[in-house]
């Protein structure tokens, strides 16, 4: 039983082949992390799942259905939310409006509950709720981007470097939030992280990507113990 299965996926930017045949599986209820060097293709893989850019070859199935050729909004409507690289919050909308945008695919009667939940996780967003997104600090924008993704109550949550630019204390908090929503709401999480140590500690399983290919995979503990992984991604990285 898999929630997301990616098989033989190739993705191009013009003539540059960013993904060179990726196979990956995520089961319901898992936290899976993807680590790799800069430019390995991690963000590209998450975006390809969302159909932007589209996979040139291979197939992507979500919850049993083929989503490889669906338009982005239709993929999202199946129950996927993505907090992409670079945060991409709407700068000329208020914090509240950004969160409302996140709730586009959610049921309207859940809105108040979900909003309250996001405000419990990130109280600063409640204080800033009428402020324009573009005027938030980098870390606050990151929290808003994660909060916005949570507003959709997705079955699969894609997070691209959620800890980027956050203070160590906030990073800790974000990771515990991820664990909590995973356990309490059995939300499946696919996490891309630079912070390999924290990510592998948190995740049930992990994949290592090099140059557009998956080179290693295993449980978080296995990868943490793997000497190649330690040498490439962990030395001094704690």
């Amino acid at each position: 039983m898999t929630l997301l299965s990616i098989s033989g996926v190739h993705t191009f930017y013009g003539r540059i082949e960013a993904l060179r045949g990726v196979d990956l599986e995520i089961r319901p209820g898992e936290i899976v992390t993807l680590i790799g060097a800069n430019g390995a293709g991690k963000s590209t893989l998450l975006m390809t799942v969302c159909g932007h850019p589209r996979a040139a070859k291979g197939s992507i199935r979500f919850d049993g259905g083929d989503i490889t050729r669906l338009p982005t909004h239709a993929i999202i409507r199946r129950g996927i939310a993505h907090a992409p690289e670079g945060r991409r919050i709407f700068p000329r909308m208020t914090v509240l409006e950004n969160l409302q945008m996140g709730a586009t695919t959610g049921a309207p009667q859940q809105f108040d509950d979900d909003l309250a939940r996001v405000f419990v996780i990130f109280p600063i967003l409640q204080q800033r709720k009428d402020q324009r997104g573009g005027t938030l600090s980098g870390g606050e924008q990151q929290m808003l981007a994660i909060g916005r993704a949570l507003m959709a109550r997705p079955r699969l949550l894609l997070l691209d470097e959620p800890s980027l630019g956050l203070a160590p204390l906030v990073v800790k908090q974000i990771f515990s939030v991820i664990r909590e929503i995973n356990e309490r709401q059995s939300m499946t999480v696919f996490l891309v992280e630079q912070n390999a140590y924290h990510a592998l500690k948190l995740a049930h399983r992990g994949y290592v990507m090099v140059n557009g290919r998956i080179t290693l995979h295993g449980t978080g503990a296995e990868l943490l113990a793997n000497s190649d992984v330690r040498a490439a991604y962990l030395e001094g990285g704690q």
Binding site: F90, M93, M101
Partner: peptide, 18 residues
């Protein structure tokens, strides 16, 4: 809101299911 979102970032707007 969807129209304003499209003005600001069309890719992100699609990523929210619009």
């Amino acid at each position: 809101r969807a129209q304003r979102a499209c003005e600001q970032d069309r890719v992100m707007t699609a990523l929210l299911g619009i």
